Simulated assay, not measured.
Amino acid sequence: MKSILAIAAATLFLSAGAAFADPIEGNWKTQSGETASIASCGGSYCITLKTGKYAGKQIGKMSANGKSYKGSITDPADDKTYSGSASLSGGALKMKGCVAAIFCKTQTWSKL
């Protein structure tokens, strides 16, 4: 009986953890068609490409700042890193990378 209760408690605990996941976490379709995974990593959120030419490459790291995110984003094609930000709106994630806060490029990713 105790083992059944322990299993039930563990199952409840694990499912509750998923319910408290940050909305940025999960798989996203990038504007160029690849899949990127965003997962918690040491108090921040790491962005890793799952498909495409650069699959497996970490391309960013962001920290939550209220309802937005700030950190860095790397262009995998030239391996240059830019100051980055992200904001959520429903199932859309706007990713923005900037050089000197003047020259910026924005992409919109969709939740998978």
Rank of each mutant, 00 (worst) to 15 (best):
1 M>G: 11
3 S>L: 11
3 S>W: 08
4 I>C: 06
6 A>E: 06
7 I>Q: 07
7 I>F: 07
9 A>T: 09
9 A>H: 03
10 A>Y: 04
11 T>E: 03
11 T>Y: 00
11 T>R: 00
11 T>N: 03
12 L>C: 04
13 F>C: 12
14 L>D: 00
14 L>H: 00
14 L>V: 05
14 L>G: 07
15 S>K: 01
15 S>M: 01
16 A>V: 03
16 A>N: 03
17 G>I: 02
17 G>E: 03
18 A>W: 00
21 A>N: 03
22 D>T: 01
24 I>E: 02
24 I>F: 01
25 E>L: 00
25 E>C: 00
27 N>C: 05
28 W>L: 03
28 W>H: 02
29 K>A: 07
31 Q>F: 00
31 Q>S: 09
31 Q>Y: 05
31 Q>P: 02
34 E>N: 04
34 E>K: 00
35 T>P: 01
38 I>P: 04
39 A>G: 00
39 A>T: 00
41 C>V: 06
43 G>P: 06
43 G>Q: 05
44 S>R: 09
45 Y>I: 02
47 I>G: 07
47 I>E: 05
47 I>V: 10
48 T>P: 07
49 L>G: 05
50 K>W: 09
50 K>E: 12
58 Q>E: 13
59 I>P: 11
60 G>A: 07
61 K>L: 08
61 K>A: 14
62 M>P: 12
63 S>P: 05
64 A>I: 05
65 N>C: 06
66 G>P: 07
67 K>H: 10
68 S>I: 11
68 S>H: 11
69 Y>V: 10
72 S>V: 12
78 D>I: 10
79 D>C: 11
83 S>I: 13
85 S>K: 05
86 A>M: 14
88 L>C: 14
88 L>F: 12
88 L>I: 14
89 S>A: 14
89 S>E: 12
91 G>Y: 15
92 A>C: 13
94 K>C: 13
94 K>S: 15
94 K>R: 11
95 M>W: 12
95 M>T: 09
96 K>Q: 15
97 G>E: 09
97 G>P: 06
97 G>M: 11
98 C>P: 09
99 V>Q: 12
100 A>M: 12
100 A>E: 06
101 A>R: 06
101 A>F: 13
102 I>C: 06
104 C>T: 08
104 C>R: 04
104 C>K: 07
105 K>Q: 14
105 K>M: 10
106 T>M: 12
106 T>W: 10
106 T>C: 15
106 T>A: 15
108 T>R: 08
108 T>L: 05
109 W>Y: 09
110 S>R: 05
112 L>E: 15
